[in-house]
């Protein structure tokens, strides 16, 4: 009889521990998931952070001998507004990019692979200067990398 009691108590305790562990694991993962859903736009510091990033990026483009010629005739404010809303949309923020499509913008520029990569490097440097963490930088690049085919060699 006493053995039965001890065994049932131990079963009960085991069950509670399992339930608590399960609960904690699930609650942790759900918190993490919702945090991750917000991360990209949030992690970029929302509208303000994206504007700051694009300002730093434009400064770097303007200072780069290899890349500046592509922007020499461009309207900086047009590019700035366009890229801000493009990043905002790509990072699942509350905006919609309504600028020209990538093909129309880059046709005739004949951008080669090396210059495209140089711009990627400048964007990375801008993100570093803006204090954006490495994993977040990579997620931003992952959003824009598929557009390369609509940008280079046209």
């Amino acid at each position: 009889m006493s053995r039965f009691t001890i065994s049932s108590i131990s079963n009960f305790v085991t069950n509670i521990v399992i339930i608590l562990l399960t609960f904690s694991v699930f609650s942790c993962s759900s918190i993490k998931e919702s945090a991750e859903q917000q991360t990209l736009y949030q992690a970029l510091g929302q509208q303000q952070g994206i504007e700051r990033l694009v300002n730093i990026f434009i400064k770097k483009l303007g200072q780069d001998k290899q890349i500046f010629p592509y922007f020499a005739k461009a309207s900086v404010s047009h590019f700035r507004q366009g890229f801000i809303s493009h990043i905002c949309e790509a990072s699942d923020g509350p905006c919609q990019y309504e600028g020209d499509n990538m093909v129309d913008i880059h046709t005739g520029m004949n951008i080669n692979e090396a210059d495209f990569n140089r711009v990627v490097e400048l964007l990375v440097l801008a993100m570093e200067e803006a204090g954006i963490d490495y994993p977040i930088q990579n997620k931003v690049l992952a959003k824009f990398a598929p557009l390369r085919g609509e940008i280079i060699k046209i």
Partner: peptide
Amino acid sequence: HLGALAGYN
């Protein structure tokens, strides 16, 4: 794969 492993390449 860019950012594929919790943001790491």
